[in-house]
């Protein structure tokens, strides 16, 4: 091995010291920065309400108080669940989050479609994207129903969508 001069040792040492400082500082910083990638969202079930009154073939918006489930504790936020009842076929609990840029879509009876006000995305009554920029159908909330003591059908959702958008 070639013998290093004093100057060379000093230069290498300076580099090593700086690198060490860098590593010590960046491990916690980067870990902290990236922590949302590894933190699971806290999931809960939320009761939306009875859906017996919802008319057939007419998407109806219901409001649920949905906990965010990330970050420091905050009060739940209001979210829309579009309940779509079909004469045959399952009842849908569509989110009104546009799959394009996640604006709030609403049912427009004159268009017979869900319309997104942001960029003009259109979805049919089943939530399939029918026009404009949206790349995917509307996602549904993860949901389940049960019958309560009065015999009503109660819709419950989880604070996550069953399709990743």
């Amino acid at each position: 091995m070639k013998k290093m001069s004093r100057r060379e040792v000093l230069i290498r040492g300076t580099g090593l010291g700086m690198g060490l400082i860098g590593v010590m500082l960046s491990v916690p910083a980067v870990g902290f920065l990236l922590s949302p990638l590894f933190t699971k969202q806290k999931l809960t079930w939320i009761t939306v309400g009875p859906i017996d009154e919802v008319p057939v073939n007419q998407p109806t918006a219901m409001i649920a108080e949905v906990p965010v489930g990330t970050g420091y504790p905050t009060p739940p936020v209001k979210r829309i669940v579009y309940v779509v009842k079909k004469r045959d076929g399952p009842t849908l609990a569509l989110s009104n989050i546009c799959t394009h840029m996640q604006c709030d879509v609403h049912w427009d009876p004159s268009l017979g479609n869900f319309l997104c006000p942001c960029h003009g995305g259109l979805y049919d009554i089943d939530g399939n994207n029918t026009g404009g920029p949206p790349p995917q159908p509307l996602a549904q909330w993860v949901h389940r129903t049960h019958t309560d003591a009065q015999g009503r059908t109660i819709l419950e959702i989880q604070n996550q969508l069953d399709e990743h958008i």
């Binding site: 949302p36 965010v68 489930g69 990330t70 970050g71």
Partner: peptide, 19 residues
């Protein structure tokens, strides 16, 4: 998706997004 999650602090916009 990773960048969105990092910025928002989760899949949805939440308290971490603002900070």
């Amino acid at each position: 998706d990773g960048i969105r999650t990092l910025w928002r602090g989760g899949e949805f916009v939440g308290p971490i997004t603002l900070t």
